[in-house]
């Protein structure tokens, strides 16, 4: 995939939980994201034990599973959103391994996904999934964190496809009052370590913070918990997304 910011300083990349509050409603959320000016959408597949997620995304995932969301159901959401904008699927390793990396990657391609992010699949465990994604023409997007040392960052950056997902904080997903002090540093280090674009996520919850991320050189800005909370509260997702997109233009 090419991370295209559509002339903005950085691409805007909202996260939504597939199947929350229902499969049909999550299609509408994705469409609202596209209407509001999102450049890429990250589509979460709910998992029973999401180790990298804070309370808001955990609760949305549990609700989606209770409402009957399945992997195929969420891939159906992917298929409906893909004609509107690139979809990057985010899911935990066991869902990929349960189906098998080849079958999972093939299903992603069939349903129009551009990329895959697996938050509990570090470089050491990734070779089989990376090979399967490469064969299917789907980008396996790696994560890097503020704790990742430079040599490791270089190794991850060299294997990156699509973009590098830079985690802004030492921590899990969730809204935060302010961006962590070190976020600009990890963006700069990631940019030096890779030739693909660098997106920043985790904790970004206001348009001002998104602008700050773009100012630090991020090529993409990912907003998760803030948007999922908006869906939970029944707020106007399109307007919220438009506000973030405007802050990046």
């Amino acid at each position: 995939m090419k991370l295209d910011a559509g002339g903005k300083r950085a691409a805007f990349m909202p996260y939504l939980m597939g199947g929350f509050p229902s499969l049909e409603a999550s299609v509408a959320v994705g469409e609202a994201c596209a209407d509001g000016g999102a450049d890429v959408v990250e589509l979460g597949i709910p998992f029973s034990d999401p180790l990298a997620d804070g309370p808001v995304i955990q609760a949305a995932g549990s609700a989606a599973l209770r409402a009957g969301a399945t992997v195929d159901g969420v891939l159906g959401v992917c298929e409906r959103l893909a004609p509107r904008l690139p979809v990057v699927v985010m899911c935990y390793a066991n869902l990929v391994l349960a189906r098998g990396p080849e079958a999972f990657a093939a299903a992603l391609r069939e349903h129009g996904a551009s990329g895959l992010i697996v938050p509990d699949l570090p470089m050491e465990e990734a070779p089989a999934v990376l090979a399967a994604c490469d064969a299917a023409g789907v980008d396996l997007v790696p994560l890097v964190a503020p704790t990742t040392p430079d040599e490791r960052l270089a190794a991850i950056g060299a294997r990156a496809r699509g973009f590098v997902y830079t985690v802004s904080v030492v921590g899990i997903t969730g809204e935060r009052e302010a961006l962590a002090d070190a976020f600009a540093d990890v963006v700069a280090r990631a940019k030096r370590a890779t030739s693909v674009p660098v997106a920043l996520g985790f904790g970004i919850s206001t348009p001002a913070q998104a602008a700050q991320a773009a100012g630090a050189g991020a090529d993409g800005v990912i907003v998760g918990s803030r948007l999922v909370r908006a869906v939970a509260d029944g707020d106007d997702v399109r307007a919220l997304v438009a506000g973030f997109a405007a802050a990046l233009s």
């Binding site: 180790l51 990298a52 390793a93 938050p119 509990d120 699949l121 570090p122 050491e124 465990e125 790696p142 994560l143 890097v144 964190a145 503020p146 704790t147 990742t148 040392p149 490791r152 991850i156 985690v167 030492v170 921590g171 899990i172």
Partner: peptide, 12 residues
Amino acid sequence: GGQYVPETLMPA
């Protein structure tokens, strides 16, 4: 076995 954890923990 293995190490299926978020990247943040790998250095630790």
